[in-house]
Amino acid sequence: MQMSEVMGVPVVDAGGTHLGKVTDIRLVQDGPYLEGFGNALRVDAVVVGRGGLGSRLGYVRGGVRGPWLLRVLAAVLEGRAFLVPWTEIHRTDAGFTATRRRGDLQQLRDAVGAGEAP
């Protein structure tokens, strides 16, 4: 599988509500040790949202500060995105289904606000 096959896949919650599309994948370097690189990068969660470009500008996750107008707009778009653990994703013919409902999912801005390094 390639990352491009995961990006853009539509995601619905446990109740069938459309959440958006996969706009990014969070990787955690805690996998098996690879000589020369270190621990392998594990797919930990997918970022699901409606803003394609806005979610990649780095205003929430990348520490980008300005210009302020873009920062406000992009932060709103990106902050609304959800972070869905990969272990809570089921693959279907129509895309991905999260095992939780929308209200129980963590928003990306909360994950970053909880101390995640940008």
Binding site: I25, D30, N39, R56
Partner: peptide, 14 residues
Amino acid sequence: MTGRRLYAALHVLD
């Protein structure tokens, strides 16, 4: 979860 965290599209692609 203690390892380094990266967002693939933001930190690796391109």
